[in-house]
């Protein structure tokens, strides 16, 4: 499974400050972390703790104010636009809102995962290669969507849409999958299904998975490693078993009334 192999990701002294007319907001504060190959990491923390910012920094959708994200030997925060596009080909991103193009067919949406590999002019004309179609159809089959291939996305259910989004990410043949609350819009059964799918990719194909998640039970059940953000700082990094109730209360800033 050579095409799914990646190098270690080293995050060093990462800080992110957003400046708006209303003032500046420190979303990430001096984060240091290394993500080895084949890892399955769940990121927990309250809303606004910096989880999404961190995830978007890992594929270069956001450029950090300070610090570096080194993949193998290259610092992706310093890449040119073109080089960054090349890096992103190998990084699948799954969104909470699925972010599919609703008016296009399921197959078209999954093929979007292959656009990064095509020359621009072929992309404009939609001239995908036979290989692209094979990869896309294989992912559809794996996610049980083969019969929906020609359906328009806006005719699907929420669970099906998220599976299309996962198929699109997997069609990239990624080394790394980043998932931002992939299950938050789904019911508990579908949430479990999404997590099982991601664990399957991780276990069978060795894809590194980093996932933001609110549902603590799912994180503990499926992830190999948990990291926690609190107000932009990394406050926990360890195996699920190491996460005590007291720590969880601290991460979620839960103030319980003492009897």
């Amino acid at each position: 499974m050579g095409k799914y192999r990646t190098a270690m990701i080293e995050v060093r002294n990462l800080s992110q400050t957003f400046v708006s007319p209303k003032g500046s907001f420190r979303a990430l504060e001096d984060v240091n972390l290394s993500i080895p190959d084949h890892d399955f990491i769940a990121i927990i923390g309250r809303s606004g703790a910096g989880k999404s910012t961190f995830l978007r920094t890992l594929n270069g959708l956001l450029i950090p104010s300070e610090g570096s994200v080194v993949v193998g030997a290259t610092d992706i925060t310093q890449l040119s636009k073109r080089a960054l596009q090349k890096y992103r080909c190998k990084v699948g991103f799954i969104f909470q809102q699925f972010n599919l193009v609703n008016r296009l067919s399921v197959l078209d949406n999954v093929l979007h995962g292959r656009l990064g590999y095509l020359p621009t002019w072929r992309g404009l004309l939609g001239l995908y290669t036979e290989h692209d179609y094979e990869v896309a159809r294989a992912q559809l089959a794996r996610l049980d969507l083969s019969t929906k291939e020609n359906a328009r996305v806006d005719s699907l259910s929420g669970g099906q849409m998220q599976r299309v989004a996962i198929a699109r990410a997997m069609a990239q043949e990624p080394a790394l999958i980043l998932a931002d609350e992939p299950a938050a819009n789904l019911d508990p059964v579908l949430s479990e299904e999404v997590m099982r799918t991601l664990r399957g990719f991780n276990a069978e194909q060795g894809v590194t998975v980093v996932i933001n998640i609110h549902a603590l039970d799912l994180a503990l059940e499926y992830a190999k490693r948990i990291i926690a953000f609190k107000r932009g700082r990394l406050v926990f990094d360890g195996r699920p078993a190491e996460l005590s109730d007291a720590l969880v209360d601290d991460i979620y800033e839960r103030k319980e009334m003492l009897a």
Binding site: K86, R88, L115, G123, R168
Partner: peptide, 13 residues
Amino acid sequence: KGPIEALESTGTA
């Protein structure tokens, strides 16, 4: 904006 972000993150030009 969702689909734009999604396509950008697949490395599409």
